[in-house]
Write a protein that binds this DNA or RNA. Structure first.
Lengths: 159, 159
DNA sequence: GCGCCGTGCTTGCAATTGCAAACACATCCG
DNA sequence: CGGATGTGTTTGCAATTGCAAGCACGGCGC
């Protein structure tokens, strides 16, 4: 149970690198690791240490935690929808914004439930990076802008 | 220049272990690492990998992130606000979806900061990513910690 | 044709991780 | 006293990390 996980982190890194449109050597340079080693990491042949992981995260300009989670190093047993709790508890959001976030989140989960029946992970290896392609994406982007603009009628912040 | 930093993480682990009132061997057993190796880690003679760190965190019943921060692997002041932490930790999302949610959330907050600077914060961009309102702050803290480690957390060791 | 620069991959190799076994030192019990 | 049993530590050693050097393939200018 040790190598398969490494594979996922490798795929994830490579995916993110492709998304950033940079070469392996370039990322290696920015991350301060050697090119061949990064190559091996991406192909799941090597298991990078936390330090290397952190460097790569910096080179990719993504959160180290995202990488750790992907590497299964933070995957404690609370992967579920604490997101909803956090969103509901976030008072810096207007009611409308909150509802949008909840809506989007739930639509995502619904989507994933349909795609991945039981216990299977999404794996994030959709090869489809950032641009909107799915319905949910488009909806989300639209909702984000439209609702964000709607701040002109702020809510009383405290019921 | 081999292990200057490691000392702090070792001390931290030993400190936490003492606080938990368990022996070195006991923690080693619970964490699934060898006793001598844990001894060396605590004395800063060895630099544990992320996996080992994670296992030790589990053995100590503390959040892995706390250890990573101590190890200087996250010291990068990553903006970890409640919702963001929850979204990042949610493994039921694909990376794409995660990015969308994060993006939307941040755009909301940005809009709100521009619209209602509830307290006139000068440059909270680098210091504390947390909200300003006392109430909101408390709630957010609660949400964040509950997500970060659902189990009991005796003392987060204020840093 | 040839050389040059760009990509990613393979190959040894020093340095390090992480462990099993054994050690030193206490404490407790016969 | 002799011997368990507890603590943390030291000592080799296989396995692994991470790198420098070099390889193979491809595109571009001459």
């Amino acid at each position: 149970m040790e190598l398969p996980k490494v594979g996922s982190i490798g795929e994830y890194i490579r995916d993110q690198r492709k998304q950033a449109k940079i070469s392996l050597r370039q990322l290696a340079s920015q991350a301060g690791v050697s090119n061949p080693y990064l190559s091996q990491i991406e192909r799941g042949l090597r298991k990078p240490s936390a330090e290397i992981l952190n460097q790569i995260a910096k080179g990719l300009r993504i959160s180290s935690q995202a990488l750790y989670v992907q590497a299964g190093l933070i995957d404690d047993r609370e992967p579920d929808s604490d997101v909803l709790a956090a969103v509901r508890a976030d008072r810096s959001l207007t009611e409308r914004q909150r509802q949008v976030l909840i809506d989007i989140y739930e639509s995502f989960r619904k989507e994933n439930r349909a795609a991945a029946p039981a216990g299977t992970e999404p794996a994030a290896a959709d090869a489809r990076p950032w641009p909107e392609t799915d319905e949910a994406d488009a909806v989300a982007q639209e909702a984000a802008t439209s609702v964000a603009d709607e701040r002109s009628q702020p809510e009383p912040k405290e019921g």
